[in-house]
Amino acid sequence: MIQFPLRPLRYFQNPFRVFKQFGFLGINRRNACYTLARNARQLYPLVDDKLQTKKILDAHQIPSPELYFTIKHNFELKYLRELGFLKDFVVKPARGAEGRGILVITDKTESGWKKASGEVISLEDIEYHVSNILAGLYALGGVNDAAFIEYRVRSHAVFEPLAWHGVPDIRLVLYRGVPVMSMLRLPTRESGGRANLHQGAVGAGVDMREGRTLGGVHHDRLIERHPDSGALIAGLEIPFWNDILEIAAKAYEVFGLGYLGIDFVIDHILGPLILELNARPGLSIQLANRAGLLKRLRAVDQVGHAEQLSSQERLSFAQNF
């Protein structure tokens, strides 16, 4: 039988209407109505600069990966020799965007350090990487930046079948203090162990009540199985789910950003840690959850002053999504 390449016209849907019914949040609306309206400009540096974020988190006893040391000037590059005492660590730019400039060292070998991808690099390579960070190569707007070395999180065993050579993280979007949507981000071979969707990681939607994964998304395509291992994405129960929600609610109170993305990792020993905060969380989370953000944001707005609710009330509100 000949397959007719074009569908008959009656199947045509007005895409704008479909998106509207779905409650899809576009980038224009996110910027104009949520980030610009809910996030005060002067609060941005708190989340854009990871060192500042860490300082605040530490001050409020919110768990995050331990900071080993920071490098703010080129002459401090010599401290990198101290890395010889470390077996594994992560180098990050303080103001890097979208996971740029992050170097994960998993092991020390005789010829140098092993990256998450398996490549072995020398101290000189690390120095070059750090000096690039200092010069602002990875920073928002190319301003001078600082680099820091921190504890390398090792993934919780639950994620073993779904994460390729990297640590999955959990992105939680909070609106006016209410966690509205969540996504588990799984590294793939293609993303080189990084958990950023545009670099090829898989995003899996998460049920807000129980913290159980739904279907996944990979390069803006809906998928059911992990592209590397072939394991089923749905049905994984994220450990410490209630703790994660509680930590998120606490972090919201500390930072005060009305529209906030929080990235968690679950260490095999330390449990949930806040990796970083994001004042402009992305939109692919909607595909991962097969649900539009706009509906949930409007539901929160209907409560009235969600900010004034207690954190317990906000969390129970979130469990209804």
Partner: peptide
């Protein structure tokens, strides 16, 4: 333009899976 909060045309393309989901 600064208050245009509608969907960008290329977002329709990027999130085209939504259309399939609707179907």
């Amino acid at each position: 333009l600064g208050r245009y909060t509608g969907i960008r045309l290329l977002e329709l393309w990027r999130f085209k899976e939504l259309l399939r989901m609707g179907q």
